[in-house]
């Protein structure tokens, strides 16, 4: 079984984020790392594709030929990666990104495509369904458990009220929530092996798309205004010396909650 896992490489969320003052794009000039949210998909993929001849193939779109995040996922155990990197992709929106990812995924002929439910930096959360539609595949979003049974994927899908059991024939696109599995830490051996695993770096033209469909032009949307939000003012701070609960009770009375 071939499993494609989409992995996004993002600016370190621990570092302060910023928008470029003129393009309003997220500043992606620093080193990029594997989005934590995608570590779950990678782990899930490795567990599902653990048989003889099974392969986990990573697909990522990132600027500047970035592979740092891919190496992390390769060190976890993925076999190889396809990286789409092209200057014309700067400023891509979710649909443009989905077009690029879908075109690259097609080349890998997967039985299953895994993504996270949403990325940490852009979190539009629409890419999984967009990819599925572009590939003409069924999709199950918000998986909190996944099992493969022959040519069927069975998923426990998070819902408002609880969860649904959902199944679909393969190939299919499944988006996974954090906590679907516990991602492994790359071993030293894994890290060494990752250095020589193949990363196929391709351009927009290589995957049969035109520059106008992607990037800032393809996005057909623009940010017109960016401003700082007025911070909510903090209030009274009480150090509890046995009177904390009583102070809350008075506050609740003032609010007429009790």
């Amino acid at each position: 079984m071939n499993v494609v896992v989409c992995v996004k490489q993002i600016p370190d969320p621990a570092a302060p984020s910023a928008l470029d003052p003129t393009t309003h794009n997220l500043d992606r000039t620093g080193k990029l790392i594997l989005d934590d949210s995608d570590a779950y998909g990678v782990e899930m993929g490795l567990q599902l594709a653990s048989g003889e001849g099974d392969e986990v193939i990573l697909v990522s779109m990132a600027p500047g030929g970035e592979t740092s995040g891919l190496r992390t996922a390769l060190a976890m155990g993925a076999a190889r990666a396809i990286l789409i990197s092209d200057d014309s992709l700067a400023g891509s929106d979710a649909l443009g990104t989905a077009k690029v990812l879908a075109a690259a995924i097609k080349r890998a002929e997967p039985d299953l495509v895994l993504t996270a439910t949403e990325s940490t930096d852009g979190y539009t959360g629409t890419i999984p369904a967009q990819i599925a539609e572009l590939l003409g595949l069924p999709s199950i979003t918000f998986a909190k458990k996944i099992a493969i049974d022959g040519s069927t994927v069975r998923v426990e899908r998070q819902t408002e009220a609880g969860y649904d059991e959902v199944e679909s024939p393969l190939p299919a696109v499944v988006s996974v929530t954090a906590g679907v599995v516990e991602p492994r830490y790359p071993s030293f051996k894994g890290i060494m092996a990752a250095k020589s695993k193949p990363v196929d770096v391709v351009t927009v033209a290589d995957i049969g798309l035109e520059a106008g469909q992607v990037g800032a032009t393809g996005a057909r949307q623009e940010i017109t205004d960016v401003s700082k939000v007025e911070a909510r003012a903090g209030g009274e701070i009480v150090v509890d010396d046995g009177n904390g609960a009583a102070r809350i009770v008075t506050f609740l009375e003032e609010l007429k909650v009790i």
């Binding site: 539609e133 003409g136 069924p138 609880g162 969860y163 959902v166 199944e167």
Partner: peptide
């Protein structure tokens, strides 16, 4: 093919 994902059971917490 896109419409082939089916709910087989619903669990309400």
């Amino acid at each position: 093919a896109t419409g082939t994902a089916k709910v087989t059971a619903r669990h309400v917490e």
